[in-house]
Protein backbone atom coordinates (compact mmCIF):
# COMPACT_ATOMS: atom_id res chain seq x y z
CA UNK A 1 0.00 0.00 0.00
CA UNK A 2 1.49 3.32 -1.01
CA UNK A 3 1.43 6.24 1.37
CA UNK A 4 0.06 9.51 0.13
CA UNK A 5 1.27 12.59 1.91
CA UNK A 6 -1.56 15.08 2.52
CA UNK A 7 0.38 17.70 4.47
CA UNK A 8 4.07 18.33 3.96
CA UNK A 9 5.97 20.60 6.27
CA UNK A 10 9.06 22.01 4.61
CA UNK A 11 11.86 23.78 6.44
CA UNK A 12 9.40 25.39 8.85
CA UNK A 13 10.72 28.05 11.19
CA UNK A 14 8.62 29.82 13.80
CA UNK A 15 9.76 32.46 16.23
CA UNK A 16 7.97 34.51 18.86
CA UNK A 17 9.78 37.84 18.82
CA UNK A 18 13.38 36.76 19.53
CA UNK A 19 12.63 33.24 20.68
CA UNK A 20 12.98 30.52 18.07
CA UNK A 21 10.31 27.91 18.70
CA UNK A 22 10.65 25.74 15.61
CA UNK A 23 13.95 25.38 13.81
CA UNK A 24 13.59 23.96 10.33
CA UNK A 25 11.01 21.20 10.60
CA UNK A 26 10.46 18.77 7.73
CA UNK A 27 7.62 16.34 8.17
CA UNK A 28 5.04 14.46 6.09
CA UNK A 29 1.56 13.67 7.31
CA UNK A 30 0.16 10.59 5.56
CA UNK A 31 -3.40 10.33 4.42
CA UNK A 32 -5.74 8.20 6.54
CA UNK A 33 -3.10 7.63 9.15
CA UNK A 34 -2.80 8.82 12.71
CA UNK A 35 0.35 10.76 13.31
CA UNK A 36 1.38 11.67 16.84
CA UNK A 37 3.62 14.61 17.61
CA UNK A 38 5.14 14.00 21.00
CA UNK A 39 7.71 15.72 23.12
CA UNK A 40 8.15 17.42 26.47
CA UNK A 41 6.35 20.67 27.34
CA UNK A 42 7.68 23.64 25.45
CA UNK A 43 9.23 21.63 22.62
CA UNK A 44 7.07 23.41 20.03
CA UNK A 45 4.66 20.59 19.27
CA UNK A 46 1.51 22.69 19.64
CA UNK A 47 3.07 25.45 17.56
CA UNK A 48 3.82 22.93 14.82
CA UNK A 49 0.20 21.76 14.89
CA UNK A 50 -1.14 25.31 14.78
CA UNK A 51 0.98 25.94 11.69
CA UNK A 52 -0.90 23.21 9.81
CA UNK A 53 -4.20 25.13 9.69
CA UNK A 54 -2.84 28.66 10.12
CA UNK A 55 -4.23 28.99 13.64
CA UNK A 56 -0.72 30.29 14.30
CA UNK A 57 -1.89 33.52 12.66
CA UNK A 58 -3.86 34.25 15.82
CA UNK A 59 -0.84 34.04 18.08
CA UNK A 60 0.40 37.56 18.48
CA UNK A 61 4.04 38.05 17.63
CA UNK A 62 4.54 34.70 15.87
CA UNK A 63 6.56 34.76 12.66
CA UNK A 64 6.45 31.85 10.29
CA UNK A 65 9.08 30.96 7.69
CA UNK A 66 9.19 27.98 5.32
CA UNK A 67 6.27 26.14 3.80
CA UNK A 68 3.37 23.95 4.75
CA UNK A 69 2.00 22.19 1.69
CA UNK A 70 -1.58 20.97 1.80
CA UNK A 71 -2.36 18.85 -1.24
CA UNK A 72 0.73 20.34 -2.82
CA UNK A 73 -0.20 23.96 -2.27
CA UNK A 74 1.60 26.23 0.18
CA UNK A 75 -1.00 27.38 2.70
CA UNK A 76 1.17 30.39 3.55
CA UNK A 77 1.01 31.77 0.02
CA UNK A 78 -0.63 35.22 0.02
CA UNK A 79 -3.55 34.16 -2.18
CA UNK A 80 -4.76 31.60 0.36
CA UNK A 81 -7.68 32.51 2.63
CA UNK A 82 -6.87 31.08 6.08
CA UNK A 83 -10.58 30.61 6.86
CA UNK A 84 -10.82 28.23 3.88
CA UNK A 85 -7.84 26.25 5.16
CA UNK A 86 -9.40 25.91 8.61
CA UNK A 87 -12.64 24.86 6.99
CA UNK A 88 -10.82 21.91 5.36
CA UNK A 89 -8.50 21.13 8.27
CA UNK A 90 -10.38 20.87 11.57
CA UNK A 91 -8.99 21.32 15.03
CA UNK A 92 -9.80 20.19 18.57
CA UNK A 93 -8.17 21.89 21.53
CA UNK A 94 -6.68 20.91 24.87
CA UNK A 95 -9.55 22.10 26.99
CA UNK A 96 -13.04 21.32 25.70
CA UNK A 97 -14.35 24.65 24.39
CA UNK A 98 -17.99 24.25 23.37
CA UNK A 99 -19.89 27.46 22.69
CA UNK A 100 -22.36 28.51 25.40
CA UNK A 101 -25.15 27.37 23.08
CA UNK A 102 -27.22 24.21 22.75
CA UNK A 103 -25.66 20.91 21.76
CA UNK A 104 -27.37 21.15 18.38
CA UNK A 105 -26.20 24.71 17.75
CA UNK A 106 -22.65 23.78 18.62
CA UNK A 107 -22.51 21.13 15.93
CA UNK A 108 -24.47 23.26 13.46
CA UNK A 109 -22.19 26.28 13.91
CA UNK A 110 -19.57 25.37 11.31
CA UNK A 111 -22.01 24.29 8.58
CA UNK A 112 -24.13 27.39 9.19
CA UNK A 113 -21.32 29.91 8.80
CA UNK A 114 -20.03 28.09 5.75
CA UNK A 115 -23.41 28.24 4.06
CA UNK A 116 -24.40 24.57 4.24
CA UNK A 117 -27.48 24.01 2.08
CA UNK A 118 -28.44 20.42 2.95
CA UNK A 119 -30.42 18.91 5.79
CA UNK A 120 -28.84 20.39 8.88
CA UNK A 121 -30.46 18.07 11.42
CA UNK A 122 -29.30 15.04 9.49
CA UNK A 123 -25.79 16.44 9.38
CA UNK A 124 -25.84 17.15 13.12
CA UNK A 125 -27.06 13.62 13.84
CA UNK A 126 -24.43 12.08 11.58
CA UNK A 127 -21.63 14.12 13.16
CA UNK A 128 -22.73 13.22 16.68
CA UNK A 129 -22.95 9.57 15.61
CA UNK A 130 -19.42 9.67 14.28
CA UNK A 131 -18.19 11.28 17.47
CA UNK A 132 -19.88 8.47 19.44
CA UNK A 133 -22.05 10.93 21.33
CA UNK A 134 -25.44 10.55 19.65
CA UNK A 135 -26.94 7.97 22.00
CA UNK A 136 -26.03 10.03 25.04
CA UNK A 137 -27.45 13.32 23.79
CA UNK A 138 -30.18 12.53 21.25
CA UNK A 139 -32.95 13.36 23.73
CA UNK A 140 -31.48 16.65 24.85
CA UNK A 141 -30.08 18.28 21.75
CA UNK A 142 -31.43 21.65 22.80
CA UNK A 143 -29.86 21.68 26.22
CA UNK A 144 -26.86 23.87 26.83
CA UNK A 145 -23.60 22.14 25.99
CA UNK A 146 -22.25 23.11 29.39
CA UNK A 147 -24.55 20.53 30.94
CA UNK A 148 -22.34 17.76 29.51
CA UNK A 149 -19.41 16.19 31.33
CA UNK A 150 -15.85 17.12 30.34
CA UNK A 151 -15.37 14.00 28.23
CA UNK A 152 -18.73 14.49 26.51
CA UNK A 153 -17.87 18.12 25.84
CA UNK A 154 -14.64 17.07 24.18
CA UNK A 155 -16.49 14.58 21.97
CA UNK A 156 -18.97 17.34 21.19
CA UNK A 157 -16.04 19.49 20.05
CA UNK A 158 -14.92 16.61 17.85
CA UNK A 159 -18.45 16.30 16.43
CA UNK A 160 -18.47 20.03 15.80
CA UNK A 161 -15.26 19.72 13.80
CA UNK A 162 -16.54 16.63 11.95
CA UNK A 163 -19.68 18.45 10.85
CA UNK A 164 -17.57 20.26 8.25
CA UNK A 165 -16.36 16.89 6.94
CA UNK A 166 -12.74 17.97 7.09
CA UNK A 167 -10.00 15.96 5.40
CA UNK A 168 -7.63 16.41 8.27
CA UNK A 169 -8.33 16.69 11.99
CA UNK A 170 -5.72 18.27 14.24
CA UNK A 171 -5.97 17.34 17.90
CA UNK A 172 -4.00 19.39 20.41
CA UNK A 173 -3.58 17.23 23.52
CA UNK A 174 -7.30 16.44 23.40
CA UNK A 175 -7.22 14.28 26.52
CA UNK A 176 -5.06 16.34 28.82
CA UNK A 177 -8.08 17.70 30.69
CA UNK A 178 -9.95 14.36 30.79
CA UNK A 179 -10.17 11.48 33.22
CA UNK A 180 -8.88 8.00 32.19
CA UNK A 181 -12.28 6.64 31.14
CA UNK A 182 -13.08 9.67 28.97
CA UNK A 183 -9.56 9.46 27.56
CA UNK A 184 -10.19 5.85 26.58
CA UNK A 185 -13.42 6.86 24.81
CA UNK A 186 -11.69 9.61 22.88
CA UNK A 187 -8.78 7.38 21.87
CA UNK A 188 -11.17 4.70 20.68
CA UNK A 189 -12.99 7.36 18.67
CA UNK A 190 -9.75 8.58 17.09
CA UNK A 191 -8.94 5.06 15.92
CA UNK A 192 -12.37 4.75 14.29
CA UNK A 193 -12.11 8.12 12.61
CA UNK A 194 -8.98 7.35 10.67
CA UNK A 195 -11.00 5.41 8.11
CA UNK A 196 -12.49 8.66 6.85
CA UNK A 197 -9.84 11.22 7.62
CA UNK A 198 -6.27 11.96 8.49
CA UNK A 199 -5.45 12.69 12.11
CA UNK A 200 -2.57 14.51 13.71
CA UNK A 201 -2.50 14.35 17.48
CA UNK A 202 -0.19 16.30 19.74
CA UNK A 203 0.54 14.64 23.04
CA UNK A 204 3.05 14.80 25.83
CA UNK A 205 1.87 11.38 26.87
CA UNK A 206 4.19 8.69 25.51
CA UNK A 207 1.74 5.86 26.14
CA UNK A 208 -0.96 7.70 24.27
CA UNK A 209 1.25 8.03 21.21
CA UNK A 210 2.07 4.34 21.44
CA UNK A 211 -1.61 3.40 21.81
CA UNK A 212 -3.16 5.38 18.98
CA UNK A 213 -0.58 6.52 16.44
CA UNK A 214 0.56 4.82 13.23
CA UNK A 215 3.39 7.30 12.90
CA UNK A 216 5.14 9.30 15.55
CA UNK A 217 7.25 12.42 15.38
CA UNK A 218 9.46 13.22 18.33
CA UNK A 219 10.15 16.89 18.86
CA UNK A 220 12.74 18.34 21.19
CA UNK A 221 13.57 22.02 21.66
CA UNK A 222 12.12 23.01 18.32
CA UNK A 223 13.83 20.28 16.32
CA UNK A 224 12.44 17.09 14.87
CA UNK A 225 14.58 14.40 16.44
CA UNK A 226 12.97 11.38 14.87
CA UNK A 227 10.00 10.44 12.75
CA UNK A 228 8.78 7.01 11.77
CA UNK A 229 6.34 4.20 12.29
CA UNK A 230 5.27 4.12 15.92
CA UNK A 231 5.87 0.39 16.34
CA UNK A 232 9.40 0.74 15.06
CA UNK A 233 10.23 3.90 16.99
CA UNK A 234 9.07 2.44 20.27
CA UNK A 235 11.04 -0.76 19.80
CA UNK A 236 14.21 0.33 18.03
CA UNK A 237 14.59 4.11 18.31
CA UNK A 238 17.33 5.42 16.06
CA UNK A 239 18.25 8.37 18.20
CA UNK A 240 19.58 8.17 21.73
CA UNK A 241 17.36 11.11 22.79
CA UNK A 242 14.25 9.31 21.57
CA UNK A 243 15.21 6.27 23.56
CA UNK A 244 15.80 8.37 26.67
CA UNK A 245 12.41 10.05 26.24
CA UNK A 246 10.33 6.93 25.68
CA UNK A 247 12.01 5.08 28.51
CA UNK A 248 11.10 7.98 30.77
CA UNK A 249 14.60 9.26 31.46
CA UNK A 250 13.35 12.85 31.00
CA UNK A 251 10.26 14.76 29.94
Amino acid sequence: MTLESIISVRNLHVSYRDRKVLKGINLDIYKNRITAIMGPSGCGKSTLLRCMNRMIDLSEGARVGGKVLYRGENIYSPKIDPAQIRFRIGMVFQKPNPFPKSIFENVAFGPRINGYKGDLSALVEQSLQRAGLWDEVKDRLHENAYMLSGGQQQRLCIARALALEPEVLLLDEPCSALDPISTMHVEELIRQLKERLTIVIVTHNIQQAARVADYTAFLLQGELVEFGETSRMFTVPKDKRTEDFITGRFG
Binding site: Q84, R86, G90, P98
Partner: peptide
Protein backbone atom coordinates in the same frame (compact mmCIF):
# COMPACT_ATOMS: atom_id res chain seq x y z
CA UNK B 1 -15.40 36.08 26.74
CA UNK B 2 -12.62 33.49 26.86
CA UNK B 3 -10.25 33.26 23.92
CA UNK B 4 -10.87 29.53 23.67
CA UNK B 5 -14.33 30.32 22.24
CA UNK B 6 -12.84 32.62 19.60
CA UNK B 7 -10.31 29.94 18.69
CA UNK B 8 -13.07 27.36 18.42
CA UNK B 9 -14.89 29.55 15.90
CA UNK B 10 -11.78 30.43 13.91
CA UNK B 11 -10.91 26.74 13.71
CA UNK B 12 -14.28 26.16 12.04
CA UNK B 13 -13.45 28.64 9.30
CA UNK B 14 -15.13 31.69 10.80
CA UNK B 15 -14.02 35.14 9.76
CA UNK B 16 -13.29 37.88 12.27
CA UNK B 17 -16.72 39.40 11.70
CA UNK B 18 -18.43 36.04 12.24
Amino acid sequence: VPNSLREAAYALGATKLE
